[in-house]
């Protein structure tokens, strides 16, 4: 942080000082913990895929690649719009920034709606942990669907948290609490959103593509 920044912050905020680089460092550390959280799941996936390759293959055929692809496109687009929203705010275009962020949130919602229908179909077919249909299948398929629900569920939870964060940020931009010269909170939410996207990019091939 430069000297002028420091002096400015000391005057306007008193006890709590402003350090944008520090904030981003904290956010990166947090993202690191998120990666490790999912890392545990990816490890378990690897262990059981290695143990039951054939049954994972058969179970994977049950998943709808079309809806998975659609959701991948949706998330990738939303990652782009949140990045553009930051760029717009940096260029002092508050209106465009708000619109782009709004699009991001709408895309996130549509991801969740797709997920709802996708899960719904699985429930209809009786494919959920503890169901009789599933318990009648071989062990590898039981584990595949267990992991599928846990990992996409945990990811979905992160999408929901992302929607909440982005909405708060949206309100703060509208109220001018986040501006072109103080946008680190928007940047940090963007980083979080990219992580949610990144994790999906690994989940998508592991569950939907490599059959």
């Amino acid at each position: 942080m430069s000297q002028t920044d420091h002096a400015h912050a000391a005057e306007s905020h008193g006890h709590i000082h402003r350090d944008d680089i520090g904030s981003k460092m904290g956010m990166w550390l947090f993202l690191f913990t998120e990666l490790l959280l999912f890392g545990g799941m990816f490890l378990i996936y690897a262990v059981y895929r290695y143990q039951y390759p054939d049954q994972f293959h058969i179970a994977g055929m049950e998943l709808d690649t079309g809806i998975g692809t659609l959701n991948t496109i949706i998330l990738l687009t939303s990652s782009l719009t949140v990045a553009l929203s930051i760029a717009a705010l940096q260029r002092k275009n508050k209106f465009l920034s708000v619109v782009l962020l709004l699009i991001t949130i709408v895309l996130a919602f549509s991801f969740m709606i797709n997920k709802y229908f996708e899960w719904g179909v699985k429930f209809e077919h009786g494919l959920y942990p503890g169901s009789e249909t599933l318990l009648g299948k071989p062990n590898g398929e039981i584990l595949f669907f267990g992991l599928y629900f846990i990992m996409t569920g945990l990811h979905g939870l992160h999408v929901v948290i992302g929607i909440i964060f982005l909405s708060i940020i949206l309100a703060m931009i509208i109220k001018d609490k986040i501006t072109f010269d103080n946008y680190v909170k928007l940047e940090n939410s963007g980083l979080y959103w990219h992580l949610v996207d990144l994790i999906w990019i690994f989940l998508f091939p592991l569950f939907y593509l490599i059959q």
Binding site: F32, T33, E34, L36, L37, F38, G39, G40, M41, I44, Y48, P129, G130, N139, I142, L143, G146, L147, F149, I150, L154
Partner: peptide, 23 residues
């Protein structure tokens, strides 16, 4: 670095108790 691993492990035990996932 270490704490997230216990986090996910604990969540799995809870899921195991509630839904019987089988992991």
């Amino acid at each position: 670095i270490a704490t997230p691993i216990i986090g996910i492990t604990i969540l799995l035990v809870i899921l195991e108790r509630v839904f019987g996932v089988g992991i």
